[in-house]
Design a protein around this nucleic acid. Structure first.
Length: 881
DNA sequence: CGATCCCGCCACATT
DNA sequence: AATGTGGCGGGATCG
C-alpha cells in the first residue's frame, strides 16, 4: 500500500521540481537515442528500449494500480522485441514472454521481474543515452521511484552505481542529474588507471594478503598490521581526503565499492572477476573482520552492483570453474580500451568519488607511467645475458626508492605483511640480487617481470609463448595461436613475448616466469613442452600433483565458499590428513583453465578464469614435467593423477595449450628448450621455461612415472606482487637423486604458492640444495643470484614468502626441494596447525562448520535489536581465541 | 541446496 | 525532529 500511495503521491510532489522533466525525457529519449548514434564507444551498449517502452512507463505511472501488470506484459514485451537486437544478450529480459499467456498471474510478479537489474533497465530507459549537452536531465528520486513502482531504496541502489560511473551525479537532495554515457569511457579510463595503481599488482597482492590474513588472523600477523586495523587502508580508497572528508562512513558505500569492482575488471587481464575474489579484495583491510558474515554481505552487495552493471551492458555473468566447482563470476564486456583521451586524473579527483580512489600522490602519474613503460621492457628476460639484467636491475633500483608508489607499496607491504618480512626481503634482495627482489617487483607490472637466468649458454630459445590458454596448440609446435580472447588481445599488446635478436630467450610479459632448466632427455621436449605449455602451469603443476596443494584445494572444496582463502588456512590441519589424497589438486588446477573456457564464451578468458586469489600452486614435480612432455598421451597424471581422476582434462588439453613451444630448431632434439608457460591464473601467472638440455635427469616420464625431473633451476620471478620469485637451482645433474622414484613426488616436486604476499622476496630453491645448502649456486644459473637462495629463503621467507602457503604446500608430501626452503622436511605440519583452527571458525562456510552457524542463529534471535556491529563484535570476540 | 538477491529495518546523515 | 541515505542481512526464490 505504501508503495502505491507513494506512487500516487509522487507524481504530485515531483511537480514542484520539474514536471517538465518527465515529459521531456520521455519524448526525447526515444528519438534521441536513435539519433544519438554518435556513439563514442563502439561497444554494443544497450540502447534504450523502444519508444514504446516509455509509453508504457507513462501508462504505468498514470495508473499505479495497473502498473504491475502493465509492467509485466506490455512494458516488457516490447522491450524484449526491440531489445534483443540492440542489447547484449546478457541482459535478462527474457522472462516475460510467458506472461502473455497468463495475465492474471501478474499477481505474482516473480522475483525476477522485480530484480534490480530489470529495474535498472527501466530506469535507464527513461533517459537518453547521450543527452544533449544543452539540456540537463534531472532525476527526481521520488518521481522515479513512483513511476517505476518501487521503493526509493531501490533507486538508491541503482543511482549509486550509476553515480560511480558518472552516468549521473547528485545535485541535491532527491535530485540527480543524468549525464548519460558521454563520459563513460573517460570514467573507465580513470578507473583503470586508478585501479592499476591500487590493484594492478595489488590485486594479487590483496588476494594473497587476505590469505595471509587469515593465517595471521590468529595471532601474530595482526600485530604486525596494527595500523591497518585501526585505519585500514582508507588510503586506498580515499587517499586525498582521507583525513578530512574521508570519514563519512558513507564513503565506503556502494558507490565506492562499485568503482572498485569495476576497477578490478579493468585491471584484470582476463576481464573476469569472480565474486568471491572481488568480495575479498573489496573487503579491504578490515582484515580482522574477515568473518564469514561480512563476506557474505559483501557478496550480496556485489550482486546488487553487478546487476546494475549488467543492465548497463558492462558486464555479464559467467561462471568460472575451479577446483571447488564453479564459482560465480562476471566478465567485463564493456569497452576495454579507452579512446585516447588522456584523462586528467585531477579533474575527476576533485569531485567524484573516483577521485577518492586515486592514489594520494598524484604526481604519481609519472611513476605510474614508468611502471607501465616498464612493462614493456621485455629485456629482463634477457637476463640470460647477465649484462642486461644488470641494467635493468639498475633501473629498477634506481627508481625504486624515490617513487612514491614505492613507498606506498612498502606501506602496503608492511601493513599487510609482516614488516619484518619486508625487511628481510629487502635485505635479502640487496644481498643477492637487487633486481629480483627489489620491491619494485611489485611495481613492475605483473606481466613483465621475469628473470631468467640461463644456465645454459646455448640457450636457444625455443621458447614458446603461451598466450592464452585458449589457444590450442597442436603439438609442441609453437604455433602462435591467434588468440581469440580479449585477453589475448590485450595481452598481446603488452605482454607479447618479444624475441630479442641476440638474446637467447624471450621475454614474456607475463607476471612470473618459471624457468625450468633441466636436461630433458628427450628431444621431444617440444612435445613435452607443448603439452606442458598448455597445461602449463596447471597441468604441470597440477600433475606435479603436489599433494599439498591438493589438500588445500580440497579443503576449499568443502568450504562452499566464499572463503577461498580459507583453503590455505584450513588446509593446514586438514592437509595433513588430506595430504595423502593429494591428487585432486592437479586436477583442480587444470580444471580452471579447462572448464572455464567451456563455460565461457571466450576460451582465452577461461584460462585465466578470473582472478583466483587462492594461491597459485605451482607444483613442479619431476613427474609433472615429464608428463607435460608426454603431453597428449600421458597427460593424465601418471600415477597419481589417475587416482584423482585424470578424467576431465583431456579434452581441454589440446585446446587450452597456453604455452607454445617454440623450438627454433624444432627438430633438433638435443637443443635446450624452454618452456614457457603462462599461467592462466588470472593475476599472477606463472610462466615456465623449461630448458631442456641440461640435466640428464631429464624427464622420462613414460618410463617411470616418476621420472625424476631434474630441474636444474627454476626461477620464478615474482613479477608483480605477491609472486615471489623462486629460483631453484638444484644441482643440475644430480638433483633429485635423493629421492628415489617411488616417491617421485618427494623427489622433485616443488610446490609453490604464489599466494603469499610477502613472496616478493625471491626464493631460491635448490633442489639439490636440500642436500647441500650451498650447493650449486650458480652452476649455470644466475650469475647474480647464485647460490644464496636456499639459505636465505628458509630463514627469512618462512613467513613472508612461502611461509604461509608454501609451507602448506610443501608440507605435503614433497620433502624435497621445497622443504628445504622453509622447513626441512615434511615438517610443514606444524605451522599449519596453529592457524587453521581459527580460520575455520570464521571463514569456513557455515555449512562446513557448525559453529558459525550456531552463532548466527543466536545472533539472529537477538538480531534486530543488536546492531550488526554488535553482533560482529560478539562474534569476533568469541571466535578469536 | 547453494546461488541469487528482494525487501525493508534501522542507523546514520542531512536538512 | 523529520527526512534523506544507504548499510545490512534475513529469508524467499531461483536454478
Amino acid at each position: 500500500e505504501n508503495i502505491f500511495d507513494r506512487s500516487r503521491m509522487a507524481p504530485k510532489t515531483p511537480i514542484k521540481n520539474e514536471p517538465v522533466d518527465l515529459s521531456k525525457q520521455k519524448s526525447c529519449t526515444p528519438e534521441r537515442n536513435p539519433i544519438t548514434p554518435v556513439k563514442i564507444i563502439d561497444r554494443p551498449q544497450p540502447d534504450p528500449w523502444t519508444p514504446t517502452a516509455n509509453l508504457k512507463m507513462l501508462i504505468s505511472a498514470a495508473s499505479p494500480d495497473m502498473r504491475d501488470r502493465e509492467k509485466k506484459k506490455e512494458l516488457f514485451r516490447p522491450i524484449e522485441n526491440s531489445e534483443q537486437s540492440d542489447t547484449p544478450d546478457s541482459l535478462q529480459y527474457d522472462m516475460v514472454d510467458d506472461s502473455t499467456v497468463d495475465e492474471f498471474e501478474k499477481q505474482r510478479p516473480s522475483r525476477k521481474q522485480k530484480s534490480l537489474g530489470l529495474l535498472c533497465q527501466k530506469f535507464l530507459a527513461r533517459y537518453p543515452s547521450y543527452p544533449l549537452s544543452t539540456e540537463k536531465t534531472t532525476i527526481s528520486l521520488d518521481e522515479v521511484a513512483s513511476i517505476l513502482g518501487v521503493e526509493r531504496r531501490r533507486i538508491y541502489d541503482i543511482v549509486n552505481v550509476l553515480e560511480s560511473l558518472h552516468l549521473v551525479s547528485r545535485v541535491a537532495k532527491n535530485q540527480y542529474c543524468w549525464h548519460g554515457w558521454h563520459n563513460l569511457s573517460q570514467t573507465l579510463k580513470t578507473l583503470q588507471e586508478a585501479g592499476e595503481q591500487q590493484y594492478g599488482e595489488l590485486m594479487t597482492f590483496f588476494q594473497h594478503k587476505e590469505q595471509d590474513l587469515e593465517y595471521k588472523f590468529g595471532e601474530q600477523k595482526k600485530e604486525t598490521i596494527p595500523d591497518s586495523q585501526d585505519r585500514p587502508l582508507m588510503d586506498f580508497s580515499e587517499p586525498d581526503c582521507t583525513s578530512a572528508s574521508a570519514n563519512s562512513r558513507k564513503d565506503k558505500s556502494l558507490r565506492i565499492m562499485s568503482q572498485k569492482f569495476v576497477m578490478l575488471f579493468l585491471v584484470s587481464k582476463t576481464k573476469i572477476v569472480t565474486l568471491d575474489i572481488a568480495a575479498k579484495i573489496l573487503i579491504e583491510e578490515t582484515q580482522d573482520t574477515v568473518d564469514h558474515s561480512k563476506f557474505k554481505t559483501k557478496v550480496r552487495r556485489l550482486y546488487d552492483i553487478a546487476n546494475v552493471l549488467t543492465s548497463l551492458g558492462l558486464i555479464k555473468k559467467v561462471h568460472v570453474t575451479e577446483e571447488r566447482g564453479r564459482k560465480p563470476a562476471f566478465k567485463w564486456i564493456g569497452p576495454v580500451e579507452f579512446p585516447g583521451k588522456t584523462t586528467n586524473l585531477g579533474e575527476l579527483r576533485g569531485h567524484s568519488p573516483i577521485s577518492d580512489l586515486l592514489p594520494g600522490t598524484q604526481g604519481a602519474c609519472a611513476p605510474y607511467q614508468i611502471c607501465a613503460t616498464g612493462r614493456q621492457r621485455f629485456t629482463r628476460h634477457t637476463s640470460f645475458n647477465s649484462a642486461q639484467s644488470c641494467e635493468e636491475t639498475g633501473r629498477k633500483v634506481s627508481f625504486e626508492p624515490s617513487s612514491p608508489h614505492q613507498e606506498r607499496q612498502d606501506e602496503y607491504c608492511s601493513k599487510m605483511r609482516n614488516p619484518a618480512a619486508v625487511c628481510r626481503q629487502k635485505i635479502e634482495e640487496d644481498t643477492r640480487n637487487p633486481s629480483v627482489t627489489s620491491p619494485l617487483s611489485l611495481f613492475s607490472v605483473p606481466g613483465d617481470s621475469d628473470f631468467c637466468v640461463n644456465p645454459l649458454p646455448q640457450a636457444v630459445f625455443p621458447v614458446v609463448q603461451a598466450d592464452v590458454p585458449s589457444l590450442s596448440l597442436p603439438n609442441g609446435i609453437s604455433s602462435q595461436a591467434p588468440h581469440p580472447s580479449t585477453l589475448a588481445a590485450s595481452k598481446t599488446e603488452n605482454g607479447k613475448p618479444t624475441l630479442l635478436p641476440n638474446q637467447p630467450f624471450l621475454c614474456f610479459p607475463s607476471s612470473s616466469l618459471f624457468m625450468l632448466c633441466g636436461g630433458l632427455q628427450e628431444n621431444n621436449l617440444r612435445e613435452s613442452l607443448s603439452s606442458a605449455g598448455d597445461t602449463g602451469n596447471r597441468s604441470a603443476e597440477a600433475q606435479a600433483a603436489v599433494p599439498s596443494a591438493v589438500c588445500q584445494k580440497r579443503s576449499s572444496h568443502k568450504c562452499t565458499s566464499p572463503s577461498a582463502p580459507v583453503d590455505d588456512e584450513e588446509p593446514a590441519v586438514k592437509k595433513q590428513t588430506m595430504e595423502q589424497r593429494d591428487l585432486p589438486l592437479s586436477l583442480v588446477v587444470s580444471k580452471k583453465p579447462i572448464e572455464s573456457p567451456k563455460a565461457e564464451s571466450t576460451p582465452g578468458s577461461g584460462c585465466s578464469s578470473a582472478v583466483h586469489l587462492e594461491a597459485f600452486h605451482l607444483d613442479l614435480t619431476s613427474p609433472a614435467a615429464p608428463e607435460a612432455s608426454n603431453k597428449e598421451p600421458t597427460k593424465p597424471l601418471d600415477s597419481q593423477e589417475q587416482e584423482k581422476g585424470s578424467e576431465n582434462k583431456d579434452p581441454d588439453e589440446p585446446s587450452p595449450g597456453k604455452a607454445h613451444i617454440s623450438t627454433k630448431s624444432t627438430n633438433q632434439p638435443s637443443l635446450p628448450q624452454y618452456l614457457y608457460v603462462q599461467s592462466t591464473a588470472g593475476l599472477s601467472s606463472f610462466n615456465f621455461l623449461l630448458p631442456a638440455n641440461q640435466a640428464p635427469g631429464a624427464i622420462s616420464l613414460a618410463a617411470n612415472q616418476l621420472p625424476s625431473l631434474s630441474v636444474p633451476c627454476v626461477m620464478v620471478p615474482s613479477a608483480a606482487l605477491a609472486s615471489f620469485p623462486l629460483v631453484c637451482s638444484p644441482t643440475i645433474t644430480s638433483p633429485l637423486p635423493t629421492v628415489p622414484d617411488g616417491s617421485f613426488s618427494a623427489a622433485t616436486s616443488m610446490s609453490f604458492s604464489m599466494s603469499s604476499l610477502a613472496s616478493t622476496a625471491p626464493v631460491f630453491i635448490g633442489t639439490t640444495a636440500v642436500v647441500t645448502p650451498k650447493v650449486s649456486p650458480a652452476p649455470s644459473v644466475d650469475p647474480q643470484q647464485p647460490a644464496h637462495p636456499a639459505q636465505h629463503l628458509s630463514p627469512a621467507l618462512p613467513r613472508s614468502c612461502g611461509a604461509v602457503k608454501l609451507d602448506s604446500h610443501v608440507c605435503m608430501g614433497h620433502p624435497v626441494t621445497l622443504l628445504k626452503l622453509q622447513q626441512p622436511s615434511s615438517a610443514p605440519l606444524t605451522p599449519k596447525n596453529i592457524r587453521p583452527v581459527h580460520h575455520e571458525a570464521f571463514f569456513k562456510t557455515p555449512g562446513s562448520l557448525g559453529d558459525p552457524v550456531a552463532w548466527k542463529k543466536n545472533e539472529g534471535n537477538q538480531t534486530r535489536n543488536a546492531s550488526s556491529v554488535q553482533r560482529r563484535l560478539e562474534i569476533s570476540s568469541t571466535s578469536p581465541d
